[in-house]
Structures are given as C-alpha cells and as structure tokens.
Design a binder for these strands. Structure first.
Lengths: 166, 166
DNA sequence: CATAACTTTCAAATATTATTGAAAATAAAA
DNA sequence: TTTTATTTTCAATAATATTTGAAAGTTATG
C-alpha cells in the first residue's frame, strides 16, 4: 500500500472511531495526524492536510489541549504555535480514561447517590433502590480501577492482566 | 426525593450517558426503563412512559435486542410482545463490551494490520509504521482482556483487580 | 504608536442524526 | 377468508451537531 493511501485510511478510521471514545470526528482526525507527524504541526499545516477551515482547526486543537491530548510547543524565533501529542498508546488511553471519568463516571455516581435515596416502600421504589444501588456499587468499582490505571505510568496494568487472563 | 422525580432524573441521565457507551439517547432510556421495571414492558407502555412515537419505540427496542441488551418475553395467552433486560450491571457491562469490540475494536485492528504494512523507507513512512504498529499491539492487548472479560460470568474480574489495585 | 502576524470568536450555513406518524405488512383469531 | 391486533417500514420533518469564513481580538515587532 502507498503511504498516501495508508495515511488517508488511517486518519479516516481514527476519525470515525472518535465518537467511540467521546470526541468528535475532526478532533480525532487532528489527533491522528499528530500521532504520525514527524515534527510539531502548526494550525496551517493541519488545515491544509485535513482540508478544514481555520475556525474548525482552532476549535478542535483547543479541545485536544483541553483533553490533555495535545500540547503546544514553541519554535525558537517563531511566533506561530505548534502542536504535538504523546505517541505512547498507554499514555493516550490513560488520558482518555481520565477525562471520560471526569465527564461521565463522576457525574453518574453523584446522580445515583441522590436518586437511590428515594423515599417509599412500594414494589416500584424497592426495585428502583436495588437497581440504582447495584449500579452505584459497580460504578464505584470501575472508578477505583480507572483511578489506579490513571496513576500508573507504565505497562504494569496489562502485564498483570496478561498473567491473570492467560 | 419522590419516586417520580428520581425516576425521571435517572432515566434522563442514563439517556445522555448513552452516547458514552455508543448507543443513542432513546435506546439508552428504554434500557433504563427496563432496568427498573418490576415486570416485562410492552411497546405501548414504553411509548407512554417515555412519550415517544411507536416507530421510534419499535426501532430502538429492535436495536436493544440486536445489542443483546433486551429480550422478548411472551405472556401466556397474549399476543403482544413484552421486553426485559438483565439487571446485573456486570452482565450489562460484558454485553456492551462484547458488542463494542465487534463494532469498533475488531475493525480498527484489521485496518491497522493493513496500513502498517505500508511500503517505503522515508522518515514519514518509518514513523507511520511505528505508530500504527504500536497501536495495533495495544489494541490486541485490549482485545484479549475484553475477550476474557466477556467469557467470565461473575465478579472474578473486579475481585482480582481489587486485590491488585489496593 | 502603527503595522503585521497570528489566534479566537460566533452567527449563519451545512451536514448529520433522530423522530414522527401514517401506511403497509404480518400474523393470530373469528 | 375476513377481521382485528400488532409490528414494521420509511419519507418527511425536526432536532442536534459541526463547519465555515469573515470580523474582531491579541500580541509581537519595527
């Protein structure tokens, strides 16, 4: 396969995968581009490569910075901003896990805490309490696993899992 | 908190969480409703409760069946179809993991396999190969963890993790 | 200070996705 | 077979999300 075709397919696939890990298509495509870049990219280069507008590029680069999935680097004597991403998949996964936990898991745990304290004794209320309490317990377990995962900065997680799941 | 309020908030939250695990809002809301139901629900009851159209209800119930997140039950002597869901969060998680693996992880592994075999020796191609190969390795590790998780049908996963992450 | 280089904003336009509702299809019962 | 209950389909519509592009904002430099 030719490089240009491979690159195009990879960027497109990464883009549509974006929604899986909670980011929009362009954001994921910019990330994909940064992953395979051999040096920091400017907004201009990103715009050109993905054929997107300046506003769009800017917005989504900011979003990546916000997610901790890209960082700004400055080139000596240049005014323009350049961007890079960490290329280690493990670091990427940990960062995504961290942000999604913050945006999704934490709020749902708070909500389940509130609603599971509902008052009443009817069959419906009893079932509701049971279900929401079970979900909360599960969410908290997941939370603590993710926390440990985030804290770690190497492959220990998969190494140990590898042994367990063999 | 009153039951009606708790129920409403829980369903709404579950609905907006839906996009997190890759399903649309209505589908997640129907699932939420089935989770707290004390008996099987018919399409009619779901429509009424969520105030959605028949077409919408039908489409999303089919989607839940397709994901393995709901199943049809028949009441003796009744023509209508009723639906239930498994209420164990662990079973839910395993089912979602299974479907998402099929829909997202498997295709991306196949793609990475193809594109990482790109021809060429330039700096760009070398970097591209390295990144896509690393991603593929990571994806395969994730895949094997998920496979083991899917196979299991109890809490062993969290029990062991609990010990590791303490 | 004035100009130029660059970044950010945001209203309008586009594109994408979800929902409705009524008609068509299906299948049990009369 | 005909009627009736129920489910499915799908074109039209509505709702949501994304993208554009030009103007406004910011900051470095002469």
């Amino acid at each position: 396969m030719e490089y240009s075709e491979a690159k195009e397919r990879y960027i497109e696939a990464w883009g549509s995968l974006g929604s899986s890990w909670g980011v929009n298509r362009t954001m994921a495509q910019i990330h994909a581009l940064l992953m395979i870049a051999t040096e920091p990219l400017s907004t201009e280069e990103i715009m050109e490569d993905l054929k997107i507008s300046r506003g769009n590029a800017n917005m989504n680069i900011r979003a990546l910075l916000d997610w901790g999935l890209a960082k700004k680097v400055l080139k000596l004597g240049e005014r323009k901003e350049y961007f890079v991403t960490d290329k280690d998949p493990m670091v990427l996964a940990a960062q995504v896990a961290k942000e999604r936990k913050k945006r999704e898991l934490d709020p749902i745990i708070r909500l389940l805490d509130e609603v599971s304290s509902v008052k009443g004794e009817s069959k419906e209320v009893q079932e509701f309490k049971k279900v929401t309490t079970d979900l909360k317990g599960f969410a908290k377990q997941a939370d603590s696993v993710i926390n440990t995962f985030i804290q770690s900065n190497s492959n220990w997680f998969f190494k140990i899992l590898g042994k367990i799941t063999r």
